[in-house]
């Protein structure tokens, strides 16, 4: 029915997936209004290309990919994201610690990352893309993606430790 532009069916789909998808958009930008704009634009693409959904995976996964691609293309079009061609990265250099932070605190830490770090961290750690896929999506080399992730992890770990110490009252 939604394929046939039934507005009620489309509204039901929107109501079901919009809150989660707005959360995805929020990962990429601090501006909630901008995140909502990105989400609406992505939902437009969802409804106009609904007939192309091949029912191979979950519908939510398909919508999520459209949302992520919309966020990436929007930021790349605005040239807000720059990736340093740094090939320095270290395998398994981080302590396997749990932050036990709330989702708002996690989002706060991610928001403080540089745009390039933030995007690659979101794609790799949250969305589960591989470095090769990220390199193809962003038009960068695989090693650049790895080095950007390395720097993002390092910054986040430092921030988590600082936040833990702050909440524990040691700082």
């Amino acid at each position: 029915m939604a394929i046939q532009n039934n507005r009620h069916a489309q509204q039901m789909i929107y109501a079901k997936y919009a809150p989660k998808m707005l959360g995805v958009c929020r990962q990429y930008t601090k501006d909630l209004q901008l995140a909502e704009d990105l989400m609406i634009t992505a939902f437009m693409k969802v409804f106009t290309h609904l007939k192309n959904f091949e029912h191979k995976g979950s519908f939510e996964g398909w919508v999520r990919r459209i949302i992520v691609n919309e966020c990436i293309s929007a930021f790349r079009a605005q040239k807000k994201v720059s990736f340093l061609e740094d090939e320095y990265y270290k395998e398994d250099g981080f302590n396997n610690i749990e932050s036990n932070l709330s989702v708002d605190d996690i989002q706060f830490l991610i928001d403080n990352l540089p745009e390039g770090y933030k995007m690659i961290f979101n794609l790799f750690a949250v969305e589960g893309y591989k470095h090769q896929e990220i390199a193809t999506m962003l038009g960068i080399t695989e090693s650049t993606s790895k080095s950007q992730l390395h720097h993002a992890r390092k910054m986040l770990q430092e921030q988590v430790l600082k936040l833990k110490n702050y909440t524990n009252g040691t700082e």
């Binding site: 989660k20 959360g23 929020r26 990962q27 909630l32 996690i106 989002q107 750690a125 949250v126 589960g128």
Partner: peptide, 10 residues
């Protein structure tokens, strides 16, 4: 981070 962010709804 992944679990918590994926469960989040705004």
């Amino acid at each position: 981070f992944r679990i918590k962010l994926n469960q989040r709804e705004i």
